[in-house]
Amino acid sequence: MLCLTYLLYFGQLGVLVPYLGIFLDGRGYSSEQIGELFAIITLARIVGPSLWATIADKSGKTLGVLQLGCVLTVISFATIFWQNTFWGLALSFGMMMMFWTAVLPQLEVITMQSVKSAGSNYGTIRLWGSIGFILLTVSVGQALDFFTTDVPIYASMITLTALMISTLFLSQPDKLNASEEQRGDFFKVVKHPAFVIFIISATLLQVSFGTYYGFFTLYLRDLGYSGQQTGLLIALGVVAEVVIFIYAQKLLNRYSVGSLLAVCGVLTALRWYALGGWGSSDIVVIGSQLLHAFSFGLTHAASVHFIHHHLPAHFHSRGQAIYIGIAFGLGGASGNYVSGQIWQQGLNAYEAFTFSAVMALLSALVFAIFSYKKWHSK
């Protein structure tokens, strides 16, 4: 059931992330407004994860928090069907994101605890999320060739409802024993140089994703790609992600987390720059999507590995929450806003992707400069 939950959760990402810009563009919003709305929505990821994770860690009811988050997500998302104004949509999407942030950190904690007790591999479970992303991305992309730009909203409602139902069949892993729960000061743990370096680098990398998340589908549309072709290209990136998840543990056993994340940052910078400079080339677009294996796949596996091994067990939810809240929330919102201001209806696509490339390169440099002395996780 964990596999199905991952499939539905990331399947929803496969609807919302690539096609929200298409939906908003269909409603007549400018690139500046799309970037601003993406930023507003993403800002909800700053407060939400820490709030939910604190409740989960202190109550010990990780599964209950996850299930409640799914219920409230469905309720808040349903209000989108009655919203027609910019601020109305921003409120509905923002509330939905606030509650949705309760899901992934708790799901990651439950999965890592289950994997540890069962002796299985996190990557083999997490790859089902990538499969879900592929299925929904391709399906919605094809549907957009035949139906209106409201398709992503209807698909999201169905997927979120199915996700809520799937969580009802999950079970809470056995509580970790006392020897594994070494008590300590949470703020002292997260102020450790290694964790600070990790958060700074992760945030810069998510800033770099702003242009991709906000405007990639619009960029391909402007270049003449159909909805089906766009869906297949996005799916290709996730196929590459699935492959890297299979081998992620072997790479983590062989190389340090810092080294892997530094390499991922460099490859991501190359990805964004090539996409902005030579996006009209099919080979470049395909190559850039294959690099998603490193930009997201290996980066995510290494990040979850680091949090699980660097923080004591009873801080895992809050550690995941800080990672998601600051990196994806603050970093993602900043990237969405800046790229929206640069984009100018696609006239400054090269400049926007170059901005993203610089941010990804800075992310890699943070590790390259500091990880040798201060990175101790492997």
Rank of each mutant, 00 (worst) to 15 (best):
L251H: 07
G277H: 04
D282A: 12
S280P: 00
Y273A: 12
W272G: 09
I246Q: 15
W272Y: 15
I283K: 11
W278N: 03
Y255L: 10
V239R: 03
G277E: 06
L275S: 12
Y273E: 08
I246A: 12
V266K: 02
G276Q: 03
E241W: 01
D282S: 10
A248W: 00
Y273M: 08
I283V: 14
G279H: 08
W278I: 01
R271Q: 06
S281T: 00
V242P: 02
L251T: 09
V257A: 10
V263L: 15
S259G: 15
V243P: 03
K250S: 15
L251Q: 12
A240D: 00
F245L: 12
V266F: 12
V263D: 05
V263M: 13
V238E: 12
C264T: 13
G279F: 07
R254V: 12
G279K: 08
F245V: 07
Y255N: 09
I244N: 07
I244M: 11
V257C: 11
F245W: 04
S256I: 02
R254E: 11
V266I: 14
V257I: 09
Q249S: 11
I283F: 14
E241G: 07
G276W: 04
S256V: 01
G237V: 06
G237D: 00
A262R: 12
G258W: 00
R271P: 03
T268D: 07
S281Q: 08
D282R: 03
E241S: 05
K250G: 13
L270R: 04
L267G: 11
Y255Q: 07
V243S: 07
V263K: 05
A269R: 03
W272L: 07
V239I: 15
V238I: 14
R254L: 11
S280E: 15
V239W: 00
Y247A: 13
L261A: 03
S281R: 05
V243C: 09
L267K: 02
A262N: 00
L260C: 06
S256Q: 09
C264Q: 08
V239A: 15
A274P: 01
E241L: 08
Y255M: 11
T268N: 05
Y273N: 05
I246N: 10
V243A: 14
A269P: 05
L270N: 06
Q249H: 14
Y255E: 08
G265T: 10
A262V: 10
Y273K: 07
G237C: 02
F245K: 09
V238L: 10
S256H: 06
W278Y: 13
V263Y: 06
E241I: 10
L275Y: 09
G277P: 07
V238R: 12
A248D: 03
L251M: 15
W272R: 09
G265C: 01
L252G: 09
G258R: 00
L267C: 14
V257G: 08
Q249V: 08
R254M: 05
E241P: 09
L260N: 06
Y247M: 13
G279A: 05
A269Q: 03
Y255R: 12
Y247R: 09
A240G: 15
S280C: 01
N253L: 06
S281D: 06
I244A: 02
I244F: 07
Y273V: 07
G279R: 05
N253S: 10
I283W: 14
G258L: 00
Y247Q: 13
Q249K: 13
G279L: 03
R254Y: 13
G265W: 01
D282T: 05
V266L: 10
